[in-house]
């Protein structure tokens, strides 16, 4: 399960992710993170059964957590199966099936949003 974690770095610059790993023992995979002097946003991947534990611990440390049920999603009524997204995606989420229809491997998505801009048909959206 993927979680989007937002935290402010105002109060003593707590190492939130490190602390959650230590406290819960869950190995967190950081897939993408943007952190500056005042705030940070990280996309993390955790095992489904430990999602609630990690989420609750993060919240107790002052972070805002958004559980992402879906990653990138495709509106099939808009998609024309051109495949422009295929070479843009850094994580190989997109590919053609044998019939040249676009298929998605959502689990690989790190929500970078590059495909959303590259899609001529406005068929791709990300939840955040």
């Amino acid at each position: 399960m993927k979680l989007l974690v937002n935290f402010s770095r105002g109060k003593g610059r707590k190492p939130i992710i490190a602390q959650v790993v230590r406290d819960t023992g869950v190995l967190i995979n950081v897939e993408r993170a943007v952190i500056d002097s005042s705030e940070g946003e990280a996309l993390i991947d955790v095992p489904d059964d430990q999602c609630k534990l990690v989420s609750d611990t993060m919240i107790s440390l002052g972070a805002r957590v958004h559980i992402l049920e879906h990653s990138v999603s495709l509106d099939e009524s808009e998609c024309v199966d051109c495949g422009a997204c295929i070479s843009i995606c850094p994580r190989e989420v997109f590919s053609f099936d044998p019939e040249w229809k676009l298929s998605l491997d959502e689990k690989r998505c790190v929500l970078c949003g590059k495909c959303v801009d590259a899609c001529p048909s406005h068929a791709l959206t990300t939840p955040v």
Binding site: C82, A84, I86, S87, E99, K101
Partner: peptide, 13 residues
Amino acid sequence: VKTSSLSSFRKAR
């Protein structure tokens, strides 16, 4: 280098 198309082969078919 990855290649990708702007036109749709499926639709052309």
